[in-house]
């Protein structure tokens, strides 16, 4: 089973060629408009003072997304970041902070992070959500953080994610729990999560 990881944890993960050279660090993750797959990464240079790189890493050039590094075939896979971002936006710009509601209009919460599957698929399998009080009553001081599976019926409407009501019947409190949860839920990612 490929490992699940949150997209924010990918930031600063090194980008390493199969030849063993580190070429950059991940700055942010880029997803497609339907929030179903990773389409690439924006990069930062390797040095202490190096800023964002003009090159981006499209998902097609990624060999595998692993726990300790993003493996790419070689340096030539990098493309101009501006070209990669034509129809897409980074996670930080578009998804984080988005509202998540059910089809019937029940507020679920706000998206804090996106959970992706490692390996070669790059599927988005769920979201880390700060649950609204109506969805999950929690302590008075702060809202509960839960992991919500993406399902295959997610609708993206502007800055709001709309999920069918039955998709949020089961949520998980932590990433290991979420891993077993999506492992048991039939969905389009089944192929990439054996």
């Amino acid at each position: 089973m490929s490992e699940l990881m949150t997209a924010r944890s990918l930031t600063t993960r090194p980008v390493v060629t199969l030849g063993g050279d580190a070429v950059a660090h991940v700055k942010d993750t880029v997803c497609d408009a339907a929030a179903s797959r990773i389409t690439g990464f924006t990069l930062t240079g390797r040095g202490l003072l190096s800023g964002p790189m003009k090159e981006g890493l499209p998902w097609s050039a990624v060999h595998a997304l692993g726990h300790d590094a993003v493996m790419i075939r070689d340096r030539r896979g990098l493309v101009a970041a501006a070209a990669m971002m034509v129809h897409q936006q980074t996670l930080r710009a578009r998804m984080l902070g988005a509202r998540m509601v059910t089809e019937t209009g029940t507020e679920i919460g706000t998206v804090l992070d996106v959970v992706v599957a490692g390996g070669t698929g790059g599927w988005v399998v769920g979201f880390r959500v700060a649950a609204s009080r109506g969805f999950l009553p929690g302590p008075t001081r702060h809202r509960r953080r839960v992991y919500v599976p993406r399902g295959d019926k997610l609708l993206v409407a502007g800055r709001a994610f709309v999920l069918p009501g039955d998709a949020v019947r089961h949520v998980a409190d932590d990433l290991p729990g979420f891993t077993s949860l999506v492992g048991g839920v039939p969905g389009y990612w089944k192929g990439s999560l054996p």
Partner: peptide, 10 residues
């Protein structure tokens, strides 16, 4: 063994 670079042995 696949590759040896400045970061790691792959």
């Amino acid at each position: 063994l696949l590759g040896l670079g400045d970061h790691a042995l792959v």
